[in-house]
Structure formats: structure tokens, C-alpha cells
């Protein structure tokens, strides 16, 4: 099967510092790929490079057959890639509902709001609360929920279980998502091996 995402010889810089040196991997449709590495290895930078959020990047990143290396991040998102950032990126000046509805739909086939509330019932009860008044775990649910809505074909979760290894609700959510998802998308969750919950499905790193 052809790869949905092909990363070839990617170099990325933050200002003067050269972070990624020839990164290469593939993600196929329906596949879960996990990036592993110690702190500072460049996992977050890899995701940000795919998203077009680093200052300078070179090499080749093609998504669904389209070269994205020269596109701005808003155009990349429109192709169907969504990022759940490490720091969650919940907006304090938006309430929960506004946070959830913020990312525009980029394709059909995203989860309906009802389904997101089924996965994360806490969100439904707090729709009018300020986004950052939620607990850390609830903010993580919100950060994941809002990109499930968009219909993106590739979800990139940056260390989604950080600090919440013992929160069953989130893991259940991730599992439920797999079981019910009619049209599974590829995901690139990233984090240390210990942080990837069992039962999330096929997990692998690319050679």
C-alpha cells in the first residue's frame, strides 16, 4: 500500500541550531506510528516540521502524493494533517465549546460532536467554562477532541499521555476511538515506549 506520509531527508532548524538531520520515515493509511527517543532527540521538531511550523526545513515531505515542503502550515492543515501539540494549546480566551469548534473541518469523515462527547463526557458538562479552567486531563481531551472533528487523515499527537499515565479516562477514549472509528486514520503519537498504552493498536517505529 502506498504511504500516506513520506518523510525523506528532512533537515530542520530553529534559528541557528540544526535540529533534524536527514529524518526519514513513512506512515501508511490506517497505521499507528510512534516516534521514540530521549529528550531533545527531535520528536516534537519532527511533528512541527511535518506541520510546517519550524523556521526552516529542507528535504521532502509528501502527504497523499503532494509535496508539502514549501507550503505554509495553514495550507498543510487543509490537506488533512492535524497536530495536538505537546503543551496542548488550549486557548484561555475561548470557552470549551469555542476551543472545540476552532479548527475548521478540512475533510468529511470527522467525528460528530456527539461522538466526541461520548468519548469525553467531561467536555459536554463544561462547554461554557474557560478553556484553561479545565483540569490537565480534560484539557488533553479537548486538545484531542477538537482535531478528531476536523476529518484530518493524519493525526499527530505530541506526547498525548504526558503526565497522565494513570488517567484511565483518556486511555479508554483512545481505545474507544479505535473501536468505533468507521474509517481509521493514521496517527503519529509520540512519546516514550512506556507512555504508549497497550491496546492502542499496531504500534511501531519505522526503520
Amino acid at each position: 500500500m502506498a504511504s500516506l506520509l513520506e518523510v525523506r531527508g528532512v533537515n530542520a532548524w530553529y534559528g541557528e541550531s540544526h535540529i533534524l538531520h536527514g529524518m526519514e520515515f513513512d506512515v501508511r493509511e490506517g497505521e499507528v506510528v510512534t516516534l521514540l527517543g530521549r529528550n531533545g532527540a527531535g520528536k516534537t521538531t519532527t511533528l512541527k516540521s511535518i506541520m510546517g511550523m519550524v523556521g526552516r526545513r529542507e528535504g521532502s515531505i509528501s502527504f497523499a502524493g503532494r509535496q508539502t515542503i514549501r507550503l505554509p502550515s495553514n495550507a498543510i492543515a487543509r490537506l488533512g494533517i492535524a497536530l495536538c501539540p505537546e503543551e496542548r494549546g488550549i486557548f484561555a480566551s475561548l470557552n470549551v465549546h469555542e476551543n472545540l469548534m476552532l479548527p475548521p473541518k478540512v475533510r468529511d469523515g470527522g467525528l460528530a460532536l456527539e461522538r466526541i462527547y461520548e468519548l469525553f463526557p467531561n467536555l459536554r458538562e463544561r462547554l461554557a467554562s474557560q478553556g484553561t479552567k479545565l483540569s490537565g486531563g480534560e484539557q488533553q481531551m479537548l486538545a484531542i477532541g477538537r482535531i478528531l472533528r476536523t476529518g484530518a487523515r493524519l493525526l499527530m499527537l505530541d506526547d498525548p499521555l504526558r503526565r497522565h499515565r494513570r488517567r484511565p479516562s483518556l486511555r479508554d477514549g483512545a481505545r474507544a476511538r479505535r473501536r468505533h472509528d468507521p474509517e481509521p486514520s493514521a496517527r503519529v503519537p509520540h512519546g516514550h515506549a512506556a507512555r504508549v498504552p497497550r491496546g492502542l493498536g499496531p504500534v511501531g517505529t519505522d526503520p
Binding site: 502550515s73 495553514n74 484561555a92 475548521p104
Partner: peptide, 22 residues
């Protein structure tokens, strides 16, 4: 809705852009 884009972009323009908003 338009205002929510504005408020969000005031806080974190890079992330709002990465959601597909110009």
C-alpha cells in the same frame, strides 16, 4: 466564530495557523 479565531490568534498565532486558518 470569527471573533474566536481572532482571540485564539492573539494568544497563539502559530497554532491557529496550523489548524488551517490563514
Amino acid at each position: 466564530k470569527l471573533g474566536s479565531y481572532l482571540r485564539a490568534a492573539t494568544e497563539n498565532p502559530e497554532l491557529v495557523r496550523a489548524f488551517g486558518i490563514n
